[in-house]
Amino acid sequence: MVSPVISLRDVTKSYGQGSARTPVLRGVSLDIAPGELVALVGQSGSGKSTLLNIVGGLDKADGGEIKVLDHDYGKTGERELARLRNTSIGFVFQAFNLLDHLTCLGNVTLPAAFAAGGKDAPARGREALDRVGLSAYADRRPSELSGGQKQRVAIARALFGRPKLLLCDEPTGNLDSATGHEVIEFFQKINKDDGVTLVIVTHERRVSNIAQRVIAMRDGNIVEGAGTDVHTAGTGDDLGGPA
């Protein structure tokens, strides 16, 4: 049996303290197999983005077991977690999160700054930009690009380290319909061609439609699609707002 890329057991997370303490995840358990393309859907505040951040090591859970790419987060130190993000996990955010003082190529190759070696970083960066169709924009600043182009640069940065896992938080949320469609097609392509596991937090039906599995969350719980053997299609047009 192939071990899952992501394995969560009874993961809990709350924000605030004392009487203001608000549970966001209430014992979430799920497995995601290698090469899966998973859509994570749910109402605003259901815990989708928090779950994604915890899987990516950007946030800490209060309890439960988290295993990602054979790394047990409970036993993984801060430095090792950073190395994992640098080499094996890619992030795509709704707000793109590009650094305006760097060129597109500079943004794409930024992960190389935190790893040894990397003399081939510019070449790899251009290759990543070429994959998203923006090789001609390598020396442009993000402020000179459209929203769709910015998101493609962000995807190129996420793919720069040739990750095994791509975590996307509302990647089409700031894009128009046509551009969003292009991005979705690109996700499908890298999932199919490179075998990259994708977890996409979304509230758009067209994204969930291309997913092999849709995991639905409500009030900090997974209400649908938690197991690797489950493949549940979306239940309606409205899949919930941003988490």
């Binding site: 950007l58 801060e78 992960p111």
Partner: peptide, 11 residues
Amino acid sequence: GVLRAIGATRA
């Protein structure tokens, strides 16, 4: 936040 997401440690 971006730097931490792409592999920067606290140090």
